[in-house]
Every structure is written in structure tokens, then in C-alpha cells.
Amino acid sequence: MKETLRKLDFLLLPLLGAAVITGLWYFSSATWAGDLPNPTKTWTESKPYVLDPFGKRGEMDQGILRFTWLSLILVAKGYSIALILGTPIGFFLGLSKTFTKAFDPIIQILRPVSPLAWLPLGMVFFAKVKGVNISEMAALFTIALCSMWPTVLNTAVGVRAIPTDYMNVARVLKLSRWKTLTKVMIPATLPYMFTGFRLSLGIAWLVIVAAEMLTGRPGVGGFLWQQYNALVYEQIILCILTIGLVGFVLDRLMSVVERRFKTA
């Protein structure tokens, strides 16, 4: 009996944890947090969004997976910009002491700034640019800027950690700069780069909610904020669970990719 229980640990313990949290949730909504909908009510009110996940009844009234999809597209765009800019910056930081001395202080200062602070600046940035969707550009600006740093810093660390032995091989064989970069430096740095990419993706997803809230774009975060303003609190929790679940899946996927490159 004891043996079987231990074997089911992986299933029973998380269920127990979830049950405890749900219990606290019931208790809170019944006592001190009067506005908080209890789990049953949350489920009944969220049903239409979950059972018809791709439905579209209006711009701000869509199935939860449809909203997720819109958010993911925005994240994918911002995240791509972050990688395209962040990786070369990381390489420069790793390669050049002068570059590091010039830009590291400013990076260290910009890095901890919250997305909530960047977004208004993004709006200002693109306000006078013609032919663009200002709110989208501001959101992309914020996502890219906030999620870039782990990629930048990890790439820089990876470049600095390239073993002297590998560089000596390149020097002895007189490899061209291009070949040294593509055949030696990039492969040697890849494991570090992918750790950066994974952390960056986590941040990009974190930022999306803030970006959508402030710009009012349709998506999980935008939906959450709209429902809050409309005094419909049930779907806030649905959004939070969705955001958490998607973030978790993204992180798992990236760590699979990351592990592939670890052996390199």
C-alpha cells in the first residue's frame, strides 16, 4: 500500500497542492474578499471562453485560445527583434573590452526598468512615425527592450568563456575572421546563447500582459484588463491561469531546444 502511494507521488502531491489552494480560494471569497468570485462561479462564467476557445463574438470578446494566439503573435514579433538585436550586442560585449566599458554601465541601468515604464516611452517614440500602428509598435518596442537583456548578457558570458584552446586552433590554422566566427566562436557560444534565449522568452511573455493592458490590444492581457474595468472578475482568474500555463509550456519547449545544444 505504502509503495503504491509513493509511486503515485508525482500525481497525488500536485493534486493535493492544488486542492489546498482551491480551498483557500473558496474560503477567501466566502469571507474577507467579497468581490472575489469563488472557483465554481469562475468556472461557470468562464465556460463560454473555454468551451469555444476559438470563437469570436467581438473584438474584445473572443475565445481564450484565440486571445492567446493573438498574444503569442505579438510576443513572437517582439522576441524575434530581441534576439536579432541582442545576440550581436552580446557578441560585441564579449569580444571587446572597450565596447563593454562603454555600454555595460548603461545596460546595467536600463536592465531593471519595468515594462510599465518603457511602454509610454514607446508610445512617444512612434507617435510621429507615419503609417504604423502606434500601440503595436510601442508594445513591440517594450517587449524587445525588456526581454533582450538575458540574451545579451548570456551571449557575452559565452563569448568570454570560449576556451583558449579553440581560439588557438583557429589562430594556428589562420582561419579567416568569418570562419573563426562561424566554425569556432558561434558553436562554442551556442549553449550560453540558448540559455539566454530561454530566459528572454520568459520575460517576453511576462511583458505581453503589461503591454496589452496599457495599449488595450486584444489578447489575454488586454482581455484581463478590459474585464476588470467592466467589473467582470471571473475571467481575470481564467486569464491568469492561461498566462501561467502558456508560459510554462513555452519554458518547457525552450529547455528541450536548449538541451539539444548543450551537447554541442
Binding site: D165, Y166, N168, V169, R171, V172, L173, K174, K183, V184, P187, A188, L190, A264
Partner: peptide
């Protein structure tokens, strides 16, 4: 003057590129 492939070097650690 500097390194070059006219001198083949065998290092103590083989220094192969692992990828």
C-alpha cells in the same frame, strides 16, 4: 612572425572542436 599552419601543433589536451 605569429602562428601559421606551416607548424603542426599537437597540444597536451587534444583541443578538438567538440561540435
Amino acid at each position: 612572425d605569429g602562428p601559421g599552419p606551416d607548424r603542426g601543433i599537437v597540444f597536451q589536451s587534444p583541443s578538438l572542436l567538440p561540435w
